[in-house]
Design a protein around this nucleic acid. Sequence first.
DNA 1: TTGTACGCGTTATCAT
DNA 2: ATGATAACGCGTACAA
Lengths: 335, 335
Amino acid sequence: MSGIKDIAKKTGLSLATISRVLNNSTLVSEKTKSIVLNAAQALDYQPNLTAAALRSGKSKIIGIIVPEINNPFFSSIINGIEQYVGKNGYSIIIAQSHESKKKERHAIQSFVKLNVDGILVSISKESNDFSFLDKLKQEKIPIVFFDRKPQIDNIKEVVFDDYYGAFMATEHLIQQGGNHLIHIAGDLNLSLYKDRKRGFQAAMERYQKSYAENHVLELKKNSAQDTQILKDHIQKNNVDSIFVNGDEDCIYVLNIIKSLGYKIPRDIRLVGFGNLSISTLVQPPISTIDQRAEDMGMVAAKTILQSLDEKQPTSFKEVLSPKLLIRESSKVISS
Amino acid sequence: MSGIKDIAKKTGLSLATISRVLNNSTLVSEKTKSIVLNAAQALDYQPNLTAAALRSGKSKIIGIIVPEINNPFFSSIINGIEQYVGKNGYSIIIAQSHESKKKERHAIQSFVKLNVDGILVSISKESNDFSFLDKLKQEKIPIVFFDRKPQIDNIKEVVFDDYYGAFMATEHLIQQGGNHLIHIAGDLNLSLYKDRKRGFQAAMERYQKSYAENHVLELKKNSAQDTQILKDHIQKNNVDSIFVNGDEDCIYVLNIIKSLGYKIPRDIRLVGFGNLSISTLVQPPISTIDQRAEDMGMVAAKTILQSLDEKQPTSFKEVLSPKLLIRESSKVISS
DNA sequence: TTGTACGCGTTATCAT
DNA sequence: ATGATAACGCGTACAA
């Protein structure tokens, strides 16, 4: 392995010329160009990106912060990001916040110290202080939020239309004959779960189903308790349809419902959210809202790369639209 | 944000002294030390890791290559790695091989150019040329293989005892009264799937069950075909127990078997491999071999960090031992 | 104990 | 079109 110095030595040309061939490629004769490239090949030239980063200020590295990397939704997004930026010669560096705003801040600090060219982040549930945005602006490091974002202006964000996705899911349940619907909500500290709840409510009102706050439940993540709560609710209100905030919770609910002796979809119909691969592995396969995680990753990646050569930071918002996937869990059995 | 130059200016001390306080910390008086640290705090000092990396040759970055990041097993391993190295001040950079040896080589190249301090890799199914090891040795970049590794000597590896895990799974099925067992194999290009197959065979022989090559099936990943194959096999050979190479395939098989009208575990008992979170979400929950993905990540991380200050490369092998998790899918129903 | 000065491998500016 | 040289920010051998 060798550097430009070695090529200079071998060809008798100057460092500057070598560098020019390897970068701009302009202002240099075709002849010397090929000489340099041949020598580079022969010597197995490998640029030292650290040195280039120090000198140029561009590290060709994009930092990513997610709550948990081993969460199928986030790892699929990361997959999308990696593929897109990788194709463009960038590497990704990853940190996890584990839903802690302290760790999130720490990760951003690290990224700044590493001179990343841009940052992609899906914020933690705790996050409420976004003063780090000023610092990043000073350092001229663009940042793009994906999926989970702060509720403030003048940011770049790639999000999913959670509101409309929830609306579609609920509407579908109603069109399948549902009259008594409930919604199992996610963590309402996150705006996206609030949006899903709002979408549920909107569809209920649109179709003139009675809606009250007690049509929205939050799980305790304690099987015995949740079973009891669901049982009471279903019996008291004749629940026939449930829209659940996410596929994982949906499968959890599915199993509880089955254990209570109800048949799905005959007695109760279910729709989840996210289209995780597990959603087709259970019986019955669950209907869900496809959240196109990889697409989100790609769009976020594209957005951050475009931001790199912006002189003035602009705001940006892309909303990915939902797609309803109808599977067994919500199909009315035609007699 | 500022660098050591700013601190030097503010304190009137030399760059060297500042650097010493911030690094070695030795050979400097307590008084100036505190002066420097105070100034650093006041000025919001952030070391430029790129510059430090160029000068010292240590980037504080560990490169990771996995086939697919959105594979729960690998993302859990990465989680383990990230947590361990993060605690030690290292960052992780990730690339995917997508089972292509070309992309794998490319990723290694990139990592070398980025001056990563060490590399962790789980090789692709295609990989058969490991000449890059020489290059890394030259560059003094340690490499540790995890889970999937080349079958050569003098490497560092953190693997799982696939052979014994498969043996335990098979033994368990036999102890539950199984007499006619089959094994659904994974990609036999990978040594770990070969080991699982060998473990199955060994247990069969140990317990004097008739074993032949046709007791090992490979799936076509085509639902209609696989259904037919399984149906034939089960009927012809009175199959009562199936050991599947991994949890995902196991759930796939589970659904086929259920669709054929067999009851699990009454008619057929199943054991998977991996203990993915989905294994508890299906009905019945599937018994499996816990592969302790996070532990594997942590051990691999520990191993690579220890390798960093080795003068002479040594070989190393850690084998994580399996744990059988018995769930409904393999429980004999006591009458 | 502290300061001076050089070098890490590039890129960029200014000459030629 | 090409070359000489400074600079990026830090670490360290050497001098004081």
